[in-house]
Design a protein around this nucleic acid. Structure first.
Lengths: 130, 130
DNA sequence: TTATAATTTATACTTAATCTAAATACAAGG
DNA sequence: CCTTGTATTTAGATTAAGTATAAATTATAA
């Protein structure tokens, strides 16, 4: 049971994510760090994100874009992406257990986890323009 | 309504995918084409895959790995990835409509599509070793 | 203190995919 | 059949995200 090793850099990055209300990519994180006066090496940011993910302090989101996004919410939840503006929101409604059961029956796999990315149109983008 | 333009290269690639029982990546496709004696340019393969995807003759799968995979099944379905061996299988059981309704209520988005990647252990990997 | 291990830094490298410019193929009209 | 315009292929350069490496720095422990 190796204990948590939060270096200065890792703390700053974790803090940044915890105070973000969106889901930034690594390069957005680097940008924001620069804005705060931090000039961590490129590799350090990736290394820190990987470490924080392994320690389950943050989650890495692979939403089908070219770059991963990061989220300080670690409870199990899903995401919905607006196909118009690209906004990403959280989805807390959990996938029905019966559906997972049905998949186990169909595939003969043991199902451990469902990773769901929903696609739709966000409230703002649905407002009809004049 | 622009009509379908299946060049020799696109036909070969579509045919290859339709006769694959897995979900190859672009580089696996290039490899298999080489094995068949075809030496299409790198860019042609990507271009063809994009074209076939747009024409909805194939589907591009983004399963969270670094490279996209391609699937000649175009009916709506999901995928399950074995966390031990990496095998990818189809999931035809559809996500319950009530769940999508619940997500619409929660998020106020209009939900158009659910993209699900399940994670589990395939039957072969579950067999206990001697 | 001294040794040892982990981390950061800067930079080089890898991989997937896109872009570009020239060459080629293709279709339509004369 | 020939010309013209458009689309496609090709080869190679380029981009973007992320990983690897080696040296320097920092932290940990005997």
């Amino acid at each position: 049971m190796n204990k948590l090793n939060l270096t200065k850099q890792r703390k700053v990055i974790l803090d940044l994510l915890q105070h973000s209300d969106d889901h930034p990519t690594a390069s957005e994180i680097i940008e924001r760090l620069r804005d705060q006066g931090h000039h961590f090496a490129y590799g350090t940011v990736y290394n820190s994100l990987k470490y924080l993910t392994e320690m389950e302090l943050i989650r890495e989101l692979k939403l089908g874009e070219t770059a991963s996004r990061y989220d300080a919410r670690t409870d199990d939840h899903h995401h919905i992406v607006c196909k118009r503006c690209g906004k990403v929101d959280e989805v807390l409604t959990e996938v029905p257990a019966e559906w997972l059961k049905a998949v186990e029956q169909e595939t003969a796999y043991r199902v451990d986890h469902a990773h769901v990315v929903l696609e739709g149109v966000c409230p703002a983008c649905r407002i009809p323009q004049a």
